[in-house]
Write a protein that binds this DNA or RNA. Structure first.
Lengths: 202, 202
DNA sequence: GTCTATATGCGGATAGAC
DNA sequence: GTCTATCCGCATATAGAC
């Protein structure tokens, strides 16, 4: 199901540079990372980087694009698999996929959560659109379940924000060597989410 | 109740530099901020900064200290006010205070959440201790309520982590011009927290 | 496509006058 | 305590050889 997040990036130097940049940005931030470091981690000289990416900012943008498309695909796959089984199972699938994705791809997720402000204005606008789409997916499911009387939610916007926030923040504290797998985290968070929505059977 | 977070910082230049640094770090990150910019925002030349702070890293450390002591004080005040009314009201008070604090002080909170990695090792250890104390406060309350049968929690550690994560992340999306006050966010999050704990009366 | 070398500017931090 | 001037290193990005 989850095909490689970097499938659209040409293998070889472009991809090695991109993944090296993800590691570096996740560790010390965009401004804390030098192009020299990225190039060295990808096994080449500083100058060679600019054959594949116009600027350091372009590198960040390419990461942001790939990452947001990956998370959108994961959410849509989850909804498609859930089908029309009712609102609770659909939200459960959404939160399970969303939280699990942020654990599995915690480094890439951390980059785009922490370094959005470093995007250049035109790049930022493109990314902001993708993010609105993600938030709308969650909010619309909650609104539909509340309208159907399946959820007990007084503040749909605020609760949707809280659910997204909770799942996204997984990428900031998750450690691969920790006690829980991404699937276990997804299951726990889906459970908590349904309780937050007042289904009573979370 | 919430006395000024910077009460321990001498007024005048030291405090102006500190608050200017908070604004700058929150906006473009620690590595994205120059000492020249901080000094200018505080109304002085670049060199004058070093009369009050040894290094840029020291500035970040002083911010981290003040901020963590402020949040600890807020949590302890909340617990003291809640008294022994039962576990649910105590957790409610804790989450209300924690989430509200992260809205009210979202800029300072963002700095210490995003830039912890920029602390120097010895500074980081000191701050890590304060953070453990905060997490323990929350976790112990949840554990006590679960042990008393007042909460229905299968995974105490994971749920405590989720609660803290949810409240902390407020500082990343909160905007003063948004539709909710810090108090409203605190109330919503306390409500959601009790539902997550399975009290049934959240 | 990769290398070495370099242009150019900005960063943190210090020195010394007032 | 603040200023101006400066040291020195590192960063992004480019040029030109291979």
């Amino acid at each position: 199901m989850t095909e490689d997040m970097w499938a659209a990036v040409p293998p070889g130097s472009p991809r090695r540079l991109l993944t090296a940049a993800v590691d570096a940005f996740a560790g010390v931030g965009y401004h804390g990372t030098s192009t020299r470091h990225i190039a060295a981690a990808a096994g080449m000289s500083a100058g060679a980087l600019y054959v594949h990416y116009r600027t350091k900012a372009d590198l960040l943008f390419q990461i942001a694009l790939a990452v947001h498309e990956s998370v959108l695909a994961a959410l849509r796959d989850a909804l498609a698999a859930a089908g029309g089984e009712g609102h609770a199972p659909r939200v459960r699938a959404l939160v399970y996929a969303f939280a699990g994705w942020h654990a599995r791809h915690h480094l890439a997720a951390r980059v785009i959560q922490n370094e959005l402000g470093a995007l250049e204005p035109e790049h930022a606008e493109r990314i902001a659109g993708l993010r609105r789409t993600v938030r709308a997916l969650l909010r619309d499911e909650i609104r539909a379940g509340a309208a159907a009387g399946e959820f007990d939610v007084a503040d749909v916007e605020g609760t949707a924000r809280a659910l997204a926030s909770l799942a996204i923040d997984v990428c900031r504290w998750y450690r691969p060597e920790g006690p829980r797998t991404p699937e276990e985290i997804g299951a726990l968070y889906a459970h908590l989410a349904l309780r937050m929505l007042g289904t009573g059977n979370g």
